[in-house]
Simulated scan of single mutants.
Amino acid sequence: MKWFTYGLELLIIRRYWREHFKKRPDIQAAHVVPDLRAILEAIEQDMGISVLPTYLVQDSIAQNRSKVLFSTLHVSNTIYAAYKSDHKSHPAFQEILLKLQK
């Protein structure tokens, strides 16, 4: 099977593999495509496989354009929002903080 990756470092795939299989993936990227949506499109065209974020594949899976191979294996990501402390009281920033906390 041909693997599509975001970069030669296999960042997304490597993290998934280490989390669930406790080792580095022993795969070669057939295609490096630095655009996750383009990778999804290639998967939908039955050109190969990859590891992609849930938010990106939800519609594709719901519409049977792609499928999940290991539905019980998940990886969580922590997202950090950084800001200049001078802007902490700005109304737009406060609104963003409230939305992120939900």
Rank of each mutant, 00 (worst) to 15 (best):
M1K: 09
M1C: 14
M1V: 11
M1W: 05
K2S: 09
F4P: 01
T5H: 04
Y6F: 10
Y6C: 12
G7V: 10
G7C: 07
G7P: 03
G7Q: 08
E9R: 09
E9C: 08
L10R: 02
L11W: 07
L11Y: 08
I12Y: 04
R15P: 06
R15A: 13
Y16W: 05
Y16N: 01
W17R: 08
E19D: 06
E19M: 12
K23M: 15
P25Q: 04
P25I: 04
Q28Y: 09
Q28D: 13
Q28M: 12
A29W: 01
A30C: 12
A30V: 10
H31P: 07
V33I: 12
D35Y: 04
L36K: 03
L36W: 04
L36M: 13
R37C: 13
R37M: 14
I39Y: 00
A42M: 02
I43N: 05
I43T: 03
E44F: 00
E44I: 01
Q45D: 10
Q45M: 09
D46Q: 06
G48A: 02
I49N: 04
I49A: 09
S50V: 01
V51P: 00
L52K: 00
L52Y: 00
L52I: 07
P53L: 07
T54D: 14
T54C: 11
Y55H: 08
Y55M: 11
L56P: 03
L56G: 08
L56F: 02
V57E: 00
V57D: 02
V57C: 03
S60Q: 02
S60M: 03
S60F: 00
S60G: 06
A62Y: 06
A62K: 05
N64I: 02
R65V: 05
S66W: 01
S66P: 03
S66M: 04
K67H: 10
K67R: 07
V68D: 04
L69Y: 04
F70Q: 12
F70Y: 11
F70D: 14
F70W: 08
F70R: 09
S71Y: 10
S71C: 07
T72H: 08
L73Y: 13
L73F: 12
H74N: 15
H74D: 15
H74K: 09
H74Q: 14
V75D: 06
V75G: 09
N77G: 14
T78A: 12
T78C: 12
I79Q: 06
Y80C: 08
A81F: 09
A82K: 06
Y83C: 08
K84E: 15
K84R: 11
S85I: 14
D86P: 02
D86N: 11
D86C: 07
K88Y: 07
K88H: 07
K88S: 10
S89K: 09
P91K: 08
A92D: 14
A92M: 11
F93P: 00
F93H: 02
Q94V: 09
Q94W: 03
Q94C: 08
E95Q: 12
E95S: 13
I96W: 06
L97K: 07
L98R: 08
Q101A: 12
K102I: 12
